[in-house]
């Protein structure tokens, strides 16, 4: 296998929550012992229900928040331990685009400022002329027009704002972009345009995406690798094709089965996952999924399943894979 772009080893991010002045701190294990390899130029999807730790994973490996433990290596370097100066080139190489196209752009800055301000930090001595050229180029790449640089973000629709946020990321010529639910606030026809633009930009600029989403249909269409998270843990990961063809973790299977499919002719047994998503403050013992799992046995409640490889590149965390 080619050298992965990024290797995540035993990554943990725990938050201490104070319920009130009298009680002890409680710990939320938002990211708990995550191990992943992200292949170069892949679209690596992270799926899971709300609170499963997707955003926290993205933010931790971008070093936007400090990790509790673990390693993230890029080009063979552990980036989490780098000091500010040594990390600066990585700050440029790694970018993030957030879900909400309404709040992620500064309302009183012109589009050219929004897109251009990072350039001055990362490309010392760049001329105004060069900045202008780069902004024009990325605007065209994301399907906007040159004159849009003189407008304010609020003058744009949701899909257009998401393009601006993406232009701001790619203008720095990154290698890796975390896309945190970039289309979930958009209508399907707008989403289709944004996804297409993202695909083209990836091919043109040799980018690697970590694509966070709730939507398995988009994963099938868009991604080539996949990790499924449940309450802070990665419960299954592998190539998209492998996981869609042979989902081995009961949670992955039920997640796929819950996803409504726009085909009224399709006949399938709907299996509904029972029970609520447990509180991440007091997750169930053993395998976190055991109270909702149709295959759970005593062992599942007592012992935490190990993360193990069941076929080449296909890892799971389950005592009784399907």
């Amino acid at each position: 296998m080619v050298e992965p772009l990024m290797t995540i080893t035993n990554l943990k991010k725990h938050f201490a929550l104070k319920k009130n002045v009298f009680s002890k701190n409680v710990i939320v294990k938002a990211v708990d012992d995550v191990n992943l390899e992200i292949p170069r130029e892949s679209i690596f999807a992270v799926v899971g229900e709300s609170g499963s730790g997707k955003t926290t994973l993205g933010r931790t490996l971008m070093k936007l928040i400090p990790p509790t433990a673990g390693m993230v290596s890029m080009d063979g370097k552990d980036i989490l331990t780098l000091d500010k100066k040594a990390f600066l080139p990585y700050r440029r190489k790694m970018q993030i685009v957030f879900q909400d196209p309404y709040n992620s752009l500064h309302p009183r800055k012109l589009v050219k400022t929004v897109i251009g301000e990072g350039l001055k930090i990362h490309f010392k001595g760049i001329s105004e002329m060069e900045i202008r050229d780069k902004i024009r180029e990325v605007l065209l790449q994301v399907g906007l027009r040159e004159e849009h640089m003189f407008r304010y973000p609020h003058e744009f629709s949701g899909g257009q704002r998401q393009r601006i946020a993406f232009a701001r990321a790619i203008v720095l010529e990154p290698e890796f972009i975390v896309l945190d639910e970039p289309t979930s606030a958009l209508d399907v026809s707008v989403q289709a345009m944004v996804l297409k633009m993202l695909q083209e930009a990836r091919a043109q600029n040799a980018l690697t995406y970590l694509f966070i989403t709730h939507n398995l249909s988009i994963v099938d269409y868009f991604a080539n690798h996949l990790a499924v998270m449940y309450l802070g843990r990665v419960v299954e990961t592998g190539s998209k094709a492998e996981i869609f063809d042979h989902p081995a973790h009961p949670y992955t299977r039920l997640l796929m089965n819950s996803n409504p499919i726009p085909d009224p002719f399709l006949k399938r047994e709907k299996q509904v996952v029972r029970g609520e998503i447990p509180s991440p403050i007091h997750p169930p013992s053993g395998c976190h999924f055991h109270p909702r799992c149709p295959f759970a046995k005593a062992e599942c409640k007592e012992q935490e399943p190990q993360y193990r490889e069941i076929s080449s590149g296909h890892f799971i965390r389950c005592h009784f894979p399907v």
Partner: peptide, 17 residues
């Protein structure tokens, strides 16, 4: 147009906006 824009498991290919 709406139906062509909807991604669907098991049917990869072009999405059309």
């Amino acid at each position: 147009g709406l139906l062509r824009a909807v991604p669907r498991v098991g049917r990869p290919g072009e999405l059309k906006a």
